[in-house]
């Protein structure tokens, strides 16, 4: 279950190691139809094809996350989603300024 509407490419999280000796760090997200396209797109979007960097991609819906505060009994484990509210929201039509 990706939570994405039908036809939309799934969301991937992107992790980049900028240079040797460093950890991979989360740099952002993107959409891709499959893993290979995700690596390819990540290279274009987040590294502009800088050579020598290592990229990890993982489907957002494959990530299991802890709940915000596991110690607090009031917070029932929020499940296994990266994002807690994978529902869609209706946005009011009156949206003035920006």
């Amino acid at each position: 279950m990706s939570g994405a509407p039908q036809g939309e490419w799934p969301l991937y999280e992107v992790f980049v190691r900028g240079k040797r000796g460093l950890n991979h760090v989360h740099v952002g997200s993107l959409h891709a139809a499959d893993d290979r396209m995700a690596v390819h797109n990540a290279r274009d979007v987040y590294t502009r094809r800088n050579e020598g960097v290592s990229i990890w991609v993982v489907r957002a819906d494959a990530i299991t996350a802890s709940s915000p505060d596991e110690k607090d009994p009031l917070f029932a484990p929020a499940g296994d989603k990266v994002y807690r509210h994978p529902t869609f929201y209706d946005i009011p039509d009156d949206v003035p300024h920006m």
Binding site: A4, P5, E8, L11, H31, Y83, H85, P86, F88, Y89
Partner: peptide
């Protein structure tokens, strides 16, 4: 925005 549960397509 997608972290708030709204998809890009939407």
């Amino acid at each position: 925005c997608e972290t708030l549960g709204v998809s890009r397509q939407e």
